[in-house]
Design a protein around this nucleic acid. Structure first.
Lengths: 360, 360
DNA sequence: CATGCTGCTTGAATCCGTTCAATCACGCAA
DNA sequence: TTGCGTGATTGAACGGATTCAAGCAGCATG
């Protein structure tokens, strides 16, 4: 509990609103009015107060203000993974919209851990925030009670809650999953791998639904080989791809639940000496900024990422009735996907440098 | 100023600490003690209070708490660019360390705009935060007065302030710049481009210093061609590279001030039909996660990113006396750099698809 | 039996703004 | 002259916790 002491400490303690009032020769009520409803204060008085504020270096205390006023000027944002460019682009959209209304953003990452999520939501609840935007790592909304109880508005990001009446902004992930797999089918692939994340995440579940639907639509000819991973990042993708190929050397294409996973999957494929897309096609999801610049430019399903965040914040700030907003995804074809090849006929997978159990 | 109304609103207004006290049959002081110094409360009493809290769904009001106690449980973080993976990795380190002590993080991005920076720091000041970690977009520390005045501790991220007595965590950028250019020199390059960012950013200035030092150490043989860009992202890198090559078709290697800029630079080089690294070597800085996975795996100067953030937060939480912490960068050689070639002899640059003025 | 000590609990004062009913000043109409 | 309306200003109550001097009970000691 020690404290750095910084050098720029000027002597005076810290002006309160009453100091300003005294200096300006007005009442505290008037100072408060200057701060919050300047239009009802007479011009000369307002000037007086501004001068006093300037001279004393007065900075209003947000806690005191909020305690009385009830309403906070910040919104909380809880994402699954702070180091996923997708979420940061969303966060950027949120912040830009919030700042238009002079709000600030508290950003935290649950890392997909429900315990950590709970803890973060608890501190959010204590802050009596203006609103909370979140991508939950669980399927229930029960643990949001604490928030809604005290009037904090909730907007779901990239998640459509089962319970009616919550605001949410999502991309149609089922459509996205369908599109991705349909693209692979159209290239002639028949045995298709799907490296998916935890099904407790709605995104994963919806993309799975879409993927299966596409397979079903193709009739009995096609097959989806699903492989679960724990973490939605490159390490997860690498491990998932290793397990998938180990058990199913004959898949000719792989749909990865997001681009980071696809990145890891491609890393593994390269380590195995597989040529992309000649021997193996890979498609990702999100179309993160660098997807087009990779060793093998990644085919992906684009979400309107920034727009997603911006709309979520806008929903929070301007809408009276909670409603769901749905965006449509868009296929972006690059070179990581190509026509199905004969590789499926080879007898066994080549040497894998990353062991199949290397999930970390 | 309307408000979403979420459905999960249970009737009761919102329990205060006095409600808990009444329910538990103790005084408010005791409830407060259970919350803040549980060890001084007798076991049975503590249990009583916990039960009451549970039954009433009591959530302490952070504003009221902070108003009286003075100390906040959050730290503010201000970075230059929220969508740069480098800063997000830093933020992850910060948050992990903060959460160990039960603090939360307010994260904002100045986008390198001093005006926006000022505004964000103002709201930070109003919150009476426990501490602020920031990468400033200006060189002065004057505008931090408001913060330090009210006892908010400041730690600089990736920036070593001129003023003595501030805590800071940096990588030795001069050494990094020197290393980068020395690497290019060792490969035989003599005319070396340097796509740098605004010199108001200390990182840019320090890397410049190091780069120049390396050139000077090489004697008169080598030359550094500097090109400034406004924004430290891929778009900036693309534009900067275009301008650099337009004016200096004979450079055989380019040092980019960070990896995003390098990404843009390589994009432009590819658009020009230049082969990397045969015709042009490119080296970046930061070694972001995907640097090794790019079309041409990027040689870069690695910073201990996560560690940088973690240490900064640790400094804030545990150190009494402000001090600077300096990490050493590390060269990571990949395939985007190679021996100098004869390309410099060609008469003029090839067609550029992105115009030289495409800075946006 | 008086005294001191320890450990626990109490309750009023306090933190710093916002809010709103009450007051005031002033000009105009009756 | 009185009365009224309007616009500006005042000041006290209030929000929900923390803090701390004071009180209290119980036990050990002299």
């Amino acid at each position: 509990m020690s404290s750095l002491r910084n050098p720029v400490t000027s002597g005076h303690p810290q002006a309160r609103i009453s100091d300003v009032a005294r200096r300006a020769g007005v009442s505290v009520g008037t100072v408060s009015n200057v701060l919050n409803r300047p239009h009802i204060v007479a011009d000369p008085t307002r000037q007086l107060v501004h001068d006093a504020i300037e001279q004393l270096g007065f900075v209003p205390n947000a806690s005191a203000r909020q305690l009385r006023a009830g309403a906070s000027r910040t919104a909380g944002v809880l994402v699954l993974d702070i180091s996923n460019p997708f979420f940061m682009e969303v966060a950027r959209g949120i912040e830009d919209r919030l700042i238009e209304d002079g709000l600030t953003m508290i950003l935290s990452s649950s890392d997909g851990d429900p315990g950590r999520e709970q803890m973060i939501l608890d501190t959010f609840a204590q802050q009596r925030l203006r609103g909370v935007l979140l991508t939950p790592s669980q399927r229930t909304v029960d643990h949001l009670e604490r928030l809604t109880d005290q009037g904090t508005d909730v907007v779901f990001l990239d998640h459509r809650p089962r319970a009616k009446g919550f605001a949410s902004v999502v991309t149609d992930d089922a459509a996205g999953g369908r599109t991705a797999v349909a693209h692979l089918l159209s290239l002639g692939h028949r045995r298709i791998g799907f490296v998916n994340g935890p099904l407790s995440l709605q995104q994963c579940r919806a993309r799975q639904t879409g993927a299966r639907r596409a397979i079903r639509a193709a009739g009995g000819a096609a097959e989806l080989v699903e492989q679960q991973v724990e973490t939605l990042d490159a390490a997860g993708g690498e491990a998932g791809m290793a397990r998938l190929l180990a058990g199913n050397p004959d898949v000719t294409a792989v749909f990865c639940v997001n681009d980071l996973v696809a990145l890891g999957a491609m890393r593994h494929a390269r380590a195995c000496g597989l040529a992309l897309p000649e021997e193996l096609s890979v498609i990702g999801y999100d179309d993160v900024s660098f997807a087009g610049e990779l060793a093998v430019p990644l085919t992906s399903v684009r979400q309107p990422t920034y727009q997603l965040g911006w709309s979520a914040a806008d929903l929070l700030l301007t809408e009276a009735a909670p409603r769901p907003v749905v965006f449509q995804p868009e296929l972006v074809v690059r070179s990581s996907t190509g026509p199905a090849s004969r590789r499926g006929e080879r007898s066994e997978p080549r040497l894998s440098t990353t062991g199949g159990g290397a999930l970390e």
